[in-house]
């Protein structure tokens, strides 16, 4: 089967990344088609430009075509619960247990990706739920991006969010060395995220290697503070059902808020919040609403002195 020459286009696995439903209308495709390979185009069916799995950088063009999506970077060391957080959000959305205020779920081009991160948190026949398997540092140098589109009833417009699902090793390497080759993915997140969630793992901070966990987190907080350039950051305590020594908790808070006084703080857990009834975990919905409320700073145009309401004569010198 013939392949497209554009590096971001994966025909015939997915559809044309330029959005042509019919490949024959795509200049890039037609330009390379030779008479002998003209029949290679799958003429009797339409390919889709998204595969459903977590998006990579090359897939972004399709999602970002409407407007630049808001990228939420989920940062934290290995086993801090980054993937579990994403999976839990998807499950809660799927149960209709999330009150998003004026927003409503409006679609996703990475449904299979969401299902994959949420899959292990479900009961399947004969198997209880478990935490998602470790997110591997794939060969790719960019994180898997999970897409979520919401519709704002009040504003009458949709917005797209991308959540990063990246391995903890990337952040550990990046915290130590900003330009580390193994931390390129984390650097991408730091550069492109509109908001960063910094996950503090209460289990690790109460375990045998408290010192190591605290050191790594403080290092990561410093790196984030140095790189964030005024963007919103939230400290997210994961596994909040686990008790922590006040001193340890205090030292993390001190580091975090001395560096970034405006940072938000959340505590989340997937553990049952009460003994009975339908569970929504702890703090998960609140955190999701916070991330969805992130906006890019608006541009404020300077007020201009005008002589009238006619836009053609908007600028001028006041005669009186």
């Amino acid at each position: 089967m013939q392949h497209c020459t554009r590096p971001t286009c994966f025909v015939p696995d997915t559809g044309c990344d330029l959005g042509h439903v019919s490949l024959s209308k795509c200049a890039a495709w037609s330009g390379q088609t030779t008479p002998s390979s003209a029949h290679a185009e799958p003429v009797d069916e339409v390919l889709l430009p998204w595969s459903g799995s977590a998006l990579g950088l090359a897939d972004l063009g399709f999602v970002a075509g409407r407007a630049r999506p808001i990228v939420i970077g989920v940062a934290g060391s290995q086993n801090a619960g980054k993937t579990t957080l994403l999976g839990a959000w998807y499950l809660l959305l799927g149960r209709g247990a999330v009150d998003l205020g004026s927003r409503r779920f409006a679609g996703s081009f990475s449904l299979t990706g969401w299902e994959a991160v949420a899959g292990s948190l479900r009961w399947s026949p004969g198997r209880p739920p478990s935490f998602p398997p470790h997110t591997t540092s794939r060969s790719g140098r960019a994180p898997g991006l999970l897409h979520l589109s919401t519709w704002d009833i009040g504003l009458g417009r949709s917005s797209d969010h991308l959540f990063t699902d990246a391995p903890g090793e990337w952040f550990q390497k990046w915290a130590v060395n900003r330009d580390s080759a193994e931390g390129v993915g984390a650097r991408w997140i730091a550069e492109h995220a509109d908001a960063l969630l910094l996950l503090a793992d209460r289990q690790a901070l109460s375990g045998e290697s408290i010192g190591q966990a605290r050191g790594a987190l403080q290092l990561l907080a410093r790196r984030v503070a140095a790189e964030r350039q005024g963007r919103p950051v939230a400290l997210v305590w994961t596994k909040s059902d686990i008790d922590l020594e006040p001193q340890v908790e205090g030292s993390i808070r001190d580091t975090m808020f001395n560096l970034m006084p405006d940072a938000a703080e959340f505590s989340v857990s997937v553990a049952p919040s009460s003994a009975e009834g339908n569970q929504v975990g702890v703090g998960l919905v609140k955190l999701l609403n916070w991330t969805l409320s992130i906006r890019r700073p608006d541009i404020v145009l300077p007020a201009s002195l005008t002589t009238g309401v006619d836009p053609l004569f908007l600028y001028g010198v006041r005669s009186s």
Binding site: G94, S120, F131, A271, N278, Q279
Partner: peptide, 25 residues
């Protein structure tokens, strides 16, 4: 909608094994 850890909580999730399983939409 299949049961998950929110609709049917598990006392201690940390004791279960981590495993890769097939994605079922």
């Amino acid at each position: 909608v299949r049961d998950d850890l929110f609709s049917k909580p598990l006392a201690d999730l940390r004791s279960t094994s981590l495993d890769n399983r097939d994605v079922q939409m």
